[in-house]
Design a protein around this nucleic acid. Structure first.
Lengths: 190, 190
DNA sequence: ACGCTAACGGACGCCGCCGTCCGGTTGGCT
DNA sequence: AGCCAACCGGACGGCGGCGTCCGTTAGCGT
């Protein structure tokens, strides 16, 4: 999945790898993608060389870390699509997506291709967006979603959602929820 | 206004001061507040020492640079308040405010108190927000603005607007305009 | 138990920014 | 014209991040 096989790694190496990923997850979620490699290594209790040996590029580390979140994205969209009421499903997707991104600053950066050449991500992103587009088409058919809604509006929303910062995670999520509610109202047909 | 009197400055010093402010304006608008002092000095064609001599703190430079924008903010809100139709005025304020912030990344950072101790700014900000609140009250009375609108929603909007980035300024403004339109729909009473 | 090799991390050189100091320059007043 | 103080900017030491090298450690297979 990453090109680097975790097999054929010595036990201590594997252990360090895990610690690096844990540290990355925590730091990326809290601070975004622009944490220094050094800081990740420190947090993981590992020398810089070890970090670079396992993940020569920050890019590789990022894609590895956010594979789960990417799957979560898919899952959210699929759940929305499975809803018998497309508009309800659409709203659910928006709410959940905003919360996911609010919980994980780094994932938003990655999703918005802060790393322009994260091809793995771009592919997953496009697939997710296409699914949302399909859901939006059905939601429009019910007359609840504005006919002039375009996919760019959703991207705009995610970009905007990224701008919302707060001191605590709890406040952050509350604010993001409020924002999602506003956007849903904006997307609703008059 | 800044504590540093531009009077009693030698002509060359005054000239450099102007060049520093110009460079800062350009860089802050384009890149936000996190440009290095060095870069500002380079852009202004001035040594680092000169920059620090004139503005010992980045904070001082920022407040000086964005005084104009702060006034523009006031003006926008006052114009909105002057509109005989409060809802129309409210919408105008939102559109103009979004555009102003879209044109100037650094100002948004400053306005959102990226510098937590920019007291001058905080005061101006609070005054502006209070004016908007008054306008909102009247707009609610007309029944066009949602009764549950709160000032935090506007701050949320500005934070969100900051998240919208684009490669070119033109695209940026287009996106921001679209966003403003969405938010207005969100704020409109059902 | 032993040895081989993967894996470790401290240390290195490089770079850019920070805020400051100081010897040279220049504007402005007499 | 000549002086003096205000002003200039190159240069400095400190810090932190970058990616890499290499001497040492310790997992694992026999």
């Amino acid at each position: 999945m990453t090109g680097r096989l975790p097999h054929s790694l010595r036990s201590d190496a594997l252990d360090n790898r895990e610690r690096i990923l844990d540290a990355s997850r925590a730091l990326f979620a809290a601070e975004g993608l622009d944490v220094s490699m050094r800081e990740i290594a420190r947090r993981a209790g590992v020398g810089p060389a070890t970090l670079y040996r396992r993940f020569p590029t920050k890019q590789l580390l990022v894609t590895e870390v956010f594979t789960d979140e990417m799957h979560a994205c898919h899952a959210i969209v699929e759940e929305g699509r499975a809803d018998p009421d497309p508009w309800r499903g659409f709203c659910l997707v928006i709410e959940r997506l905003c919360e996911l991104h609010a919980r994980n600053r780094g994932f938003t950066d990655a999703f918005m291709s802060a790393f322009p050449d994260a091809m793995d991500f771009a592919a997953g992103r496009e697939h997710t967006l296409a699914s949302i587009a399909e859901l939006a088409r059905r939601a429009k058919a019910t007359g609840r979603l504005r006919p002039d809604f375009v996919l760019d509006d959703l991207i705009l929303m995610l970009m905007a959602n990224r701008g919302i910062h707060a001191t605590s995670t709890a406040t952050q999520i509350t604010a993001s929820r409020r924002f999602a509610a506003l956007m849903i109202r904006a997307f609703q047909a008059p």
